[in-house]
Amino acid sequence: MQVLLVEDNVLLAVALQAELEVAGYGVIGPAHSAAQARALANEHDFEVAVIDIDLQDGRTGGTLAKELSHDHSCAVVFATGQTHLAREWCDYAVGVLKKPFNPKTVVRTVEGASEFLSGKTPAWPYQFEKF
């Protein structure tokens, strides 16, 4: 399964990518800006998108979530410390993984998002807020 990763903190992006790959996921990205994410999204298939709110091209994570959830049949999860901003886009995402979190948590979150897509009720990690 493919995951689009959109995170502008390089260090975190590297860690999240490593965790997802070790868990057997294919990672598209990491993209550091909404513009990069759009370009990648048009070229690749993915089931889940993990998106930070503040990106290199500004506070663009919310709009990106809206576009991706509309144009691609994917589940969006936010990964951000700006929980209140993520909630403003709750119509376009499954929930928010609240920073700071152990990078390992992203694996359980992505599993959850994919289960959610197939109609199941996942057990989310405790740092995850379901919308």
Partner: peptide, 20 residues
């Protein structure tokens, strides 16, 4: 507040990367 959160997120990342 925001910086602290992000710094801790970075520390978590370093920890996990170094562990691996």
């Amino acid at each position: 507040n925001h910086r602290i959160k992000n710094t801790l997120a970075s520390v978590f990342a370093l920890y996990q990367i170094s562990l691996r």
